[in-house]
């Protein structure tokens, strides 16, 4: 594989993910899945899910963690650096001008309506991430039970996500060994 090409492709993919990544980490997962798994086949779905789990367990934004990880898997340390830069670059371009034009930003009714209109789409993207990840994670009765149990814990106990993942790991060891 041509190295220069792969670096360019990584940069473009992660630039797209950063540029259209409205609504925070989980909605960016849908973009990641489409670009990384479906379009380029850089990762399998299970690898993708496991990287998200690791990103969830480690500090820092999920989008950045996934960029670093995927970049490294595809093209080593340079790939990791280029992918991470790619996902941050749109913010570098957009945030400072937006801060300077902040009054204009809030007074522009069309812009505000567009940003409001994105909300249902953001939730739909999170829905897609849940669907893709769910279909590949919940594969039998045992994993379904773990999933339902986790959802009940989240709803009724406000358990910390890190603790929930640890509990999932313990449940996995109990059920699957």
């Amino acid at each position: 594989m041509n190295n220069l090409n792969i670096y360019t492709e990584l940069f473009i993919s992660f630039f797209k993910i950063g540029f259209f990544g409205f609504g925070g980490g989980y909605s960016m997962l849908a973009l990641l899945e489409r670009e990384i798994v479906q379009m380029h086949g850089w990762l399998s779905v299970t690898e993708f899910v496991d990287i998200i789990a690791i990103a969830e367990m480690t500090p820092g934004a999920v989008a950045i963690n996934s960029a670093t990880f995927v970049g490294y898997q595809i093209a080593g340390v340079a790939g990791a650096a280029i992918s991470t830069f790619g996902v941050i670059f749109p913010s570098l371009l957009l945030v400072i001008p937006a801060a300077k034009l902040v009054t204009l930003f809030y007074q522009n009714k069309n812009l505000q309506n567009a940003l409001n209109g994105i909300h249902p789409a953001v939730i739909a993207l999170i829905g897609l991430a849940a669907y893709v990840i769910g279909v590949n994670s919940i594969i039998d009765i045992k994993s379904a039970l773990i999933g339902v149990g986790a959802l009940l814990l989240l709803t009724f106990t406000k358990i910390h996500p890190l603790l929930l993942i640890a509990a999932g790991a313990v449940a996995g060891l109990i059920f699957y060994l």
Binding site: I133, I138, K142, G147, A171, G172
Partner: peptide, 17 residues
Amino acid sequence: AAFMGIRPAVTALIIYT
């Protein structure tokens, strides 16, 4: 085995969001 349990937990986190 641990990841077999972690994956459904991650799914639950996303659905909860």
